[in-house]
Nucleic acid binder design. Structure first.
Lengths: 201, 201
DNA sequence: CCGAAAGCATGACATCTGTCATGGCGGAGT
DNA sequence: ACTCCGCCATGACAGATGTCATGCTTTCGG
């Protein structure tokens, strides 16, 4: 019997996943949580064999949760599951100690297969996504450039960003300029988009 | 027996929904499709009582599909299901003839409940979302303002937008300016964000 | 210890953007 | 027929933005 922990902020898909996995004879869902910071406590309680974590969650990022979990309970294998097949996500998930990475475009069979494979010690990744991830490479952005872009995401003025980050306007403009150059974009908004789509946030 | 058609581009959540609904004794999933333009053909074949449509789908928008479906098969009740509880979506869904609107944050019980209620002729909407929808009101944007914002979404320069829309730069700037004013934003990026979150795209 | 690299800041400059005033055109409603 | 209203366009202008050169600190690895 493979004991599984589910983490997804959307109650509906979480419940649906539970129903689907519950249909398998050798799989049992032992815990469901809706926020990233509930993952480790729930895992401590229920000792799952496999944890299925969504990337987008309130409280704590699914990737950070994956890192914590594989630290706290090394016996628990982690599968990261996400809507967006962004190359950077895969890289970060693997770096966080995840054993599998599944996109929500996959078929149900692929998911239960991933659970079983991961449980038996294998690693599971979408080959196409792995290739793209290698092609995209690591983020060329420095930490501050990433910070600035992250705050710029919701479209404030330079003055707003400077206030939010406690930096001078000139510095913010420099970081933005560097980020724009590195992403090959022509405007701030484009740079944000590129960085977002590459999983560099 | 309530016959249900499922439409969602993500195979994993579609399969999971099917598994979940299949557990109910009085519900039967008779069709699953992954694109908006497959909805009506599949519905003609399988004559479902209820159609559960996601908003985000390739081929055809879930909202357009809802409109088509309620035209083509008035006997089939439509529930629109979406990740994002944007006020404008609800309004457009209802205008398209949908009988229910469910956010993916809802509980599994609420979904099966919605299917049963809708099947028995009732309408189902999230009260909180309905209130927000009424408060947000209709889009204040004119058609061209909406177009300009839609193209501005992926962050090009004014010249790019002008070229894409076959307008002069000055006109684009005017529309942007109007949109910025109407959305209460301070920059183009903010205006895009506001319009997007309100479902005015 | 010292150089390389990153963060931070300033100042200057060309360009882009947002705003405003103005005007012509076509359709909808009175 | 006349008048709004939206769409398109032009021109002008202040302010924001992106780029560049320069310099100072801190941290890190050789």
């Amino acid at each position: 019997m493979i004991k599984v922990l589910l983490a997804d902020d959307q109650a509906l898909v979480r419940g649906a996943f539970a129903a689907m996995l519950g249909l398998e004879a050798d799989i049992e869902v032992v815990a469901e949580v809706s926020a990233g910071d509930e993952v480790v406590p729930a895992a401590r309680r229920t000792k799952p064999d496999v944890a299925l974590l969504d990337v987008q969650m309130p409280g704590k990022d699914g990737l950070s949760a994956a890192a914590e979990l594989s630290q706290a309970l090394p016996s628990c294998r982690v599968i990261v599951c996400t809507t967006f097949g962004r190359p950077g996500y895969l890289a970060r998930a693997m770096a966080a100690g995840a054993a599998g990475f599944v996109v929500k475009d996959a078929t149900p069979e692929q998911l239960v297969d991933a659970v079983r494979r991961v449980h038996s010690g294998l690693r599971v990744v979408d080959p196409a996504l792995a290739a793209e991830s290698l092609a995209t490479g690591q983020s060329p952005l420095t930490d501050r450039e990433r910070d600035v872009l992250a705050v710029a995401r919701d479209g404030g003025t330079v003055a707003d960003l400077a206030k939010a980050l406690h930096l001078s306007e000139g510095t913010v403009r420099n970081h933005l300029s560097a980020a724009i150059g590195k992403t090959g974009a022509r405007t701030r908004a484009e740079a944000v988009k590129v960085a977002e789509d590459s999983g560099w946030l």
